[in-house]
Design a protein around this nucleic acid. Sequence first.
DNA 1: CCATTAATGGAACAGGAGTCCCGTTATGAC
DNA 2: GTCATAACGGGACTCCTGTTCCATTAATGG
Lengths: 206, 206
Amino acid sequence: MTSESTGPGSVRPGGRTARVRSAVLRAAGDALAEHGLAGLDLADVARRAEVGRTTVYRRWGTPASLVADLLADMAEQSLPRTESGSLLGDLRANARLVRRTLADPRQGALFKAVLAAATCDPQTAAALHRFYEVRVAEWEPCVRQAVERGELPAATDTREVIRAVSAPLYYRLLTTGDPLDEAAADRAAEAAAAAARAGAFVPPTA
Amino acid sequence: MTSESTGPGSVRPGGRTARVRSAVLRAAGDALAEHGLAGLDLADVARRAEVGRTTVYRRWGTPASLVADLLADMAEQSLPRTESGSLLGDLRANARLVRRTLADPRQGALFKAVLAAATCDPQTAAALHRFYEVRVAEWEPCVRQAVERGELPAATDTREVIRAVSAPLYYRLLTTGDPLDEAAADRAAEAAAAAARAGAFVPPTA
DNA sequence: CCATTAATGGAACAGGAGTCCCGTTATGAC
DNA sequence: GTCATAACGGGACTCCTGTTCCATTAATGG
């Protein structure tokens, strides 16, 4: 154990290896969206990806590890952020983007499955946390601008405002059967903006 | 198929059968809290409950079905609701109760596992929805009273206000590694109250 | 282009999850 | 108390998940 053991795919990451990873991640996403986490069978993923079972077991080993890699891949694909000039406009754009994603049959199911996977394994949870840190950091500037414009209290926890927009949408996705319509997204944005203006996201003086 | 097939436990639900169900549900809760959904092995549950494997497979069949039954059981155990006289006070009490539950190592892990299970199976999801319907209905009156007192707009969607309190806590539980402290609970209550006062939960005139 | 060897994929193997069969236990009706 | 049978529990069996071994393929360095 003089040198850390480098897993398969790290020494020759080009060509075939990259192709295999791509195919497997795509297949894993499909499988998760279709059958959920419980139905995530590595043998099935290998079949879908037209890759040897052995390869999948060797490189990822467990469903949790595969999902963690999938999350790392998802974190890299960032969506463009629009700017509307007003806090409510920006938050609404964010809320609608999140809603569209969660309401989409494939993406919504995928996110549910990924959240489920994160509850089962610490490493997957860490990957999920990174994913949302990236997403929140992308949108946080629009709240910061609102603070600079004087729309919000100076000490506002800007990241928490962004999270407050997503929270009701995710909560609805998981705990009710109600559809995620655009009205829900707009309500989430309005509620977050109103709460922020009222100073609900100003930490109690440290 | 003249009469609907009644599953085991429905004809003689007393004595031993009830004891078995109780022991199995307790064991399932323990297993879920310890290993999460992925580690929920019916054979292991049977061992913990000191019950025959066959019995567990026959009566519940799948992990999802077992979790659904566990949820039905959890929905029956209701927690007492306190009344403080003000909207913010009531919402804060609710937020702190939810926080305590989710921050508790066993209960928190159990809720995460149950949410994960609901993403895998429609029946489990339905049981989860019922569970939260019951919980929301229990607390909704305190918002209704605030409306009657004139603290909130008349057309406020009272149930949505209660959900707005829980949402950020669940969102944090799942998507960040941050601890669920009391400050987070109070902030959730304040944000929901502020948003409600601002009319964010008044449906756009139908 | 050639050589080295990382990475893949098929096949055989092992272990465990889930099912079936049937004898045993104890519930509920009388 | 007694009876009929619902429900339980042990053990054998099957199938499938995950592992190991080794031959084949193709990425990288020269």
